[in-house]
Simulated scan of single mutants.
Amino acid sequence: MDPSSDEEVAAAAIVLLKWKKKQMKKRLWTRPWLARRQEGSVYYKLLRELSSEVPDTMRKWIHLSKEAYLKLLQLVTPLIEKEDTNMRDAVTAGERLTLTLRYLVAGETQASLVCQFQISAPLISSISPEVFRAIYQVLKPTYFKLPTSGDEWHQVASSYYSQWNFPMCLGALDGKRVLIAKSPNTGSEYYDYKGHFSIIMLAVVDADYKFLYVDAGACGRASDGGVWEKCNLKEAVENNLILPQKNLPSYVSFEQHQDFGTIFNNATQKKWPNVASAVKVDAGALQSK
């Protein structure tokens, strides 16, 4: 047999073996240490030990009591639960929620979460946004509830007067800048006056610090006036969409902080000329309601 032919056959065999090894690597579904998730993940070991032995430490770890955690898990499970497949077991709803809570509580990096929960980085990047949406969907009706009737607004005003000595106050309005990583191709759009990249959250709270209204996402470079102009609360106030036309006292106000106070007062006084300093109201009028 021709020696050159033998060399060609050997070379072809080597190429074929390399190709097969490469294909085997491509067909690898998951890394072995990730497949052992149920043996070493903090969810299956640490969380269960904390919940059964030291619930106070569990609360510090995820900022929820055991009861609150189980209640939230029950609410979001129908929205985030996945089915097992023939290839692998799905990441459970509990793992998804706990992973997201750790990210929210401690600002864990994706690399850190991968090591703690033994879940791949691409999957983690898809889990968090899904759980965020689920939490918002199930909790919004309870915790982001704007009053819709005169009686409900009177309750807000009554709480402000009894707890903080603010007569006829319907809410505290302020903004908060939340730092973010610079998004691609955004230039200086989110660059604020403090030298950070941020988005702005505008919120109204009642006397117990509970949110009545939240608007988030305005770019950090926007001024207070710019945020207010694009906020749907402004439209609702100016068009009488949130405050009832009857059964409210002559003087109503939101208690504001710094520049948002001037902006809101200017907007409301165009619609209600009698809106002035809340402290001028006779407290007896409120107590009689």
Rank of each mutant, 00 (worst) to 15 (best):
S188A: 14
G195Q: 01
Y136G: 04
W228K: 02
D151Y: 11
H154A: 13
D174L: 00
V205T: 14
G175Q: 11
G187S: 13
W228V: 03
P147D: 10
Q163T: 13
G217N: 11
Y193N: 14
D206Y: 00
W153V: 04
S223H: 12
A157I: 12
A218G: 07
D151F: 06
W153K: 12
T148V: 08
F211R: 01
S159R: 14
N165W: 12
A172P: 09
G175C: 06
D215G: 00
M168Y: 09
S198F: 04
G150Q: 09
P147Y: 06
F211A: 01
W153S: 06
Y209V: 09
D151R: 15
S159K: 15
G187L: 09
V138I: 08
S183A: 15
V178K: 07
T148W: 06
I135Q: 01
S183P: 14
A207K: 06
F211L: 01
S223Y: 15
N165D: 15
G195T: 09
D174V: 00
Q155T: 15
P167Y: 13
V178F: 14
A181Y: 08
A134I: 07
F211S: 02
T148F: 05
Y209N: 10
S149R: 05
G171C: 05
V205P: 03
W228C: 01
K176C: 15
K182F: 09
D208H: 13
E229T: 13
E229M: 10
V205F: 01
D208G: 05
S223K: 08
Y160F: 15
I199P: 10
Q137G: 03
G225I: 06
L179Y: 11
Y190E: 03
T142F: 15
V156A: 08
F197T: 10
Y190K: 03
